[in-house]
Structures are given as C-alpha cells and as structure tokens.
Design a protein around this nucleic acid. Structure first.
Length: 493
RNA sequence: GGUCGGUUGGAUGAGUGGCUUAGUCUACGGUCUGCAAAACCGUCUACAGCAGUUCGAAUCUGCUACCGACCUCCA
C-alpha cells in the first residue's frame, strides 16, 4: 500500500521534510521555466535536469504527476537602458522581428536542447502570453482583497499592507522593516508607494510592441504574476511542489507567495524546492555576468573556454554527479572527468547486458537496489546513487573478466536495477553500439560486417599472424572503431 | 551595509558524532595480455584556522579568515 517516503528539502522551512502530497495518488508540481529571448546556457540545464529527476522519481514511486513548466514570453522588465521595456520586445526590435518570432525561435531551440539532454517534457507548458485574461482576473482578485493600488494606469502590490496581516519575506528570510528602510529613500517620483512594491500590471509606453487591453490601461502583466496565475489554474489553489533556481527565491517566489495569498486568502505551495547555481571560476554562471556558455556551444565545443565538445549525456552526468542543492563548478577538467566516468559506466552497462550467468554468484547484488532507492529518497541524492552504481561496475567487470560469477537470478536483478536507476530515473541514455564476437551480429548489416572483420582478426591471432591482426585493428581504429580484446573474444565501439 | 549559504585529498564531489570516513577523474606501482586498449589490485589517508562541548568531531557550539548567492532581470 504505502509508498516509500520521499524526503525533500523545503526552502520554506529550511529543513528536510517527508513529502506528503495533498492527494495520495497524484502530485502537482510547478517549475519556473525559461524566458525565451536567448539561447539556453548551462545554468538553464540545472533546474531542467534537477526537476526532471524529481518528475521521473515521483513517477517511479507510483504517483501520477502533473508537471507544469511555464514559458515566459512577456513581462520581466528590463531595468537598465530602456526602462520599462519588455525583454522580448527589445530583442524583437533590435532584430526587426515580431516578438512572437523571437519567442518561437528560442523556444524551439530550447526544446531541442532539452530533448538532447533527455529531459522529459512537462505535461503542461503554458505560455504567459496565452494567459493574459487569467492574469488580469488574478489582479482583480488582489485588488478586491485590498492589497493592490492603481497608479497612473499601472497596478502595484501593496507590500506594506500585506505585511500587516501576512509575513512578507518568510521564504527568503527577509526582514520586512529592513526592506522598507532600504527602499524608502530611493524613489522620489516613482509611481510606487514603496520601493519594494511590485507591479502586477504595467501600463505600456508608446514604444512597446507587446501590450494588451485591461481595465486599467493598455499594458502588460507584472513580473511575477504568471506563475501565480498559471500554477493555480492548472494545479489548484493549493498544490504540492514549486521549484526553480535558488536565485528566484527573492524577489520572484516571495512575490508569488504574496500575490497568491492576497488573492486566495491562503497559501498555495506546500514544498518549495530550489536548485543551486553552476559556477565558473567560483562565480555564478548567468546572463548578468556574461560568463555563460550556451548548451549548443557545449555540444559543439564552439566556445573559447572549451577545449572540446561535450555530449549532452556528459553534461547531464556532470550535473547529476553533484547534489542539486550544492553549487557545482564548471571547468574543462571537471567535464572531461565526467565524460570518462560516463564512458566507464556505459561500458559496464553494455557488458552487463551481455553477461552469461553461472550456476552460482560470487558477487553480492542484494543491497544495490535498496542503496540506490535510499539515496534517491534522501532528497534526490543522485551522486550517491551513481557511486553505488560504480561500485557495482566493479562486479560487472570482474564477471566479464571471468574472475567472478553471477547466477541468472542475480543477473536479472542487476540488469533491472541498472535499467531502472540509470535509464529510467537518472535518464542517462547509454548507446549500446558495442558488439561482441561470436554472438549475433544481429539484423544490423553494419555490425555484422565489423564483427566479421574482427572474427578474421581472431583467426589471425590464433595463427599468431600478428601483422594481419594488428592491421585489422589499426585500420579499424583509423576509421573510428575502438577494438578491445576480452577474455574470450573482443568488443568494439 | 543587511539576509543566507559555503570552505573536504592533485581535480571534482558525497558524507553530519565513533563502525571500511564515498564515488569519479588524474598520477604512480603492480597483475593480466603477442602488442595495444580495457579490466582488476594497490598507493597518495583530506576535511580553512583557533578555541570549546564530548570518552570521542570533518560532523555540535563560538570566534576569526576567505569565498559566494540574494537584496535589480537572472536557472
């Protein structure tokens, strides 16, 4: 009956807590998705992969999951140059494109990158621009509740009033009085009553391309509104999990809590989860610092800082080798190490699938599944899962070398654990391109041909015709095949 | 300045009171092998500093130093 209890760290309480979903069978999760006005970089891969793991693991535990990840294609004002100009609109003007062209372009590229990283698509991917009406309705509810005011056609959230009845700052640990002090003097002629008030609806300036009619002005929705609106629309007024990058805790998620609580009269999210940042030279990789490397640049090795290209699975493995709440430092060496490790894991996996069972086992596989499950249940500790799997690769290699044996029963168990953990939960795609001598070259003619060559090499070896055998190996290598001899045959990749 | 977090071996990165103190990569030595590759075995025994709590601390407490995140868009 009961599912194992997943322990997750809740930013709201700053503690690990047992996960108790509102509904026993179903889980609702919302994750902040990308703003589609530029190519996704390594930092964007972190939440996507982190919450992909959560999504996969919740399903593994037997939950039906509704996973909502939004696409931000409006809002998010730029603060620097053109004040109040929408990011999408700005980019569009610069490139002489329709805003929706920009959105479409980068959204397609984002989807492609996610697919290559083997990130499962969310079950709902709502666009902010497709929910303008809902956002307007949401603003009305906040106004009706008395927590917003109009100023020159824009609507602002009244933080001071809200904080009298609620705790503004509870998520990020902000002290409300200090927030007031820090922001009071700054704005002389702002439309806002307080610096820390935030826009729910913003009146569009004439040069704005993206705007919609509303009861207050021709304009666009505020920075934080879409997540409150779309989250509650698709997951209900209360739902289980809200995730995102740790840099969104303040102000974005803090404002979300305030908006939702003001509009609905109660809290919405039960568990707040945040992934940590990827750093480069110890500093956060991000747009603001201009120190980011896009995912495509990784895949192609086309960035000056990269000494080579890295496959999507290497990137995924690299990220999974650190716990999601730790920072992880990018460097070529670290990525190369991840690449080698993944290779080792992949080869062990492929060998595992070809192992022939013996009567008895000299290896112990009984604990592996439980160890992996326990690590996952403990706040998604993927590095520990990987370490257990690496431990098991030693057994696999020993069996392959003929130094250990495994029974059919244990072999089935081991295969299943690897398939479940490595492929289903960690989402690592391990290409099984390696073949083996003497066995079915299979339907694939290509494989058959390579196997045939290596069979001939085996015969040459038996005749101690090293010249021929080395020639075959070297020529194949020149063509990109790596040949490795095994105890009683060969393998290639 | 405020709030929060971090500092682990050559690199990366788990671990929260004792038990084998992970795993990966690298390096070195060895085994195996016609050679190569792979694999296996072994070695490098770290926990920022100081003080305290304790029978015992990388792990708890305090202080110091350094680093970072957020306070503005940000994954």
């Amino acid at each position: 009956m009961g599912k194992p209890v997943l322990i997750i760290y809740n930013t709201l309480t700053r503690r690990k807590e047992p996960f108790r979903p509102i509904n026993e069978e179903r889980v609702g999760m919302y994750v902040c998705g990308p703003t589609v006005y530029g190519d996704g970089h390594l930092g964007h891969a972190r939440p996507a992969i982190t919450f992909d793991i959560l999504y996969r693991y919740l399903m593994h535990l037997g939950y039906k999951v509704r996973y909502v990840r939004n696409i931000t294609d409006v809002g998010h004002l730029e603060h620097d140059a053109d004040e109040g100009e929408d990011k999408i609109a700005k980019k569009a003007r610069l490139e002489q494109l329709e805003p929706m062209e920009v959105v479409q372009h980068y959204l397609l590229r984002y989807h492609k990158a996610m697919e290559r990283l083997n990130v499962l698509p969310p079950t709902i991917e709502p666009h902010a621009s497709g929910h303008i009406i809902e956002q307007i309705e949401f603003v009305k509810r906040i106004i009706d509740a008395g927590y917003a005011y109009e100023s020159n056609g824009s609507i602002y959230f009244d933080v001071e009033k809200y904080s009298k009845n609620h705790s503004y700052g509870k998520l990020s640990g902000r002290n409300i009085d200090e927030l007031f002090e820090n922001t009071r003097e700054l704005d002389g002629q702002s439309e806002k009553r307080r610096g820390c008030d935030f826009a729910l609806w913003k009146k569009a300036q004439p040069e704005h391309i993206m705007h919609w009619p509303s009861p207050w002005s021709e304009g666009f929705p505020g920075w934080h509104l879409e997540c409150s609106t779309m989250g509650t629309k698709y997951l209900g007024e209360e739902f289980d999990i809200h995730g995102g990058g740790i840099d969104l805790v303040f102000p974005h998620h803090e404002c979300e809590i305030a908006q939702s609580t003001a509009a609905l009269g109660h809290e919405t999210v039960h568990y707040w989860m945040h992934n940590n940042m990827i750093t480069i030279d110890g500093k956060k990789m991000g747009k603001s610092y201009g120190n980011f490397i896009t995912l495509d640049e990784f895949f192609e090795g086309s960035h000056p800082l990269l000494t080579q290209a890295y496959s999507p699975m290497t990137i995924r493995f690299f990220i999974l080798q650190a716990h999601y709440r730790s920072t992880v430092d990018f460097s070529n060496d670290a990525l190369i190490a991840a690449e080698r490790g993944l290779e080792r894991m992949t080869e062990a996996y492929n060998r595992l699938m070809r192992i022939k069972p013996s009567e008895t086992s000299s290896v112990d596989v009984s604990k592996l599944r439980q160890q992996c499950e326990e690590a996952m249940l403990d706040d998604l500790n993927t590095p520990i899962v990987i370490s257990h799997l690496f431990d098991a690769t030693k057994s696999i290699n020993a069996i392959t070398d003929g130094k250990a044996t495994i029974s059919q029963l244990d072999l089935d168990e081991l295969k299943d654990v690897f398939n479940v953990m490595l492929k289903d939960i960690l989402g690592l795609q391990l290409d099984a391109t390696m073949s083996e001598g003497g066995k079915e070259g299979g339907a694939d003619r290509f494989k058959g041909a390579v196997d045939l060559l290596l069979q001939i090499r085996m015969e040459a070896k038996q005749n101690k015709d090293w010249a021929t055998s080395d020639k075959i190996r070297d020529e194949l290598k020149a063509l990109g095949f790596n040949v490795k001899d095994t105890k009683d045959g060969f393998e290639w990749s």
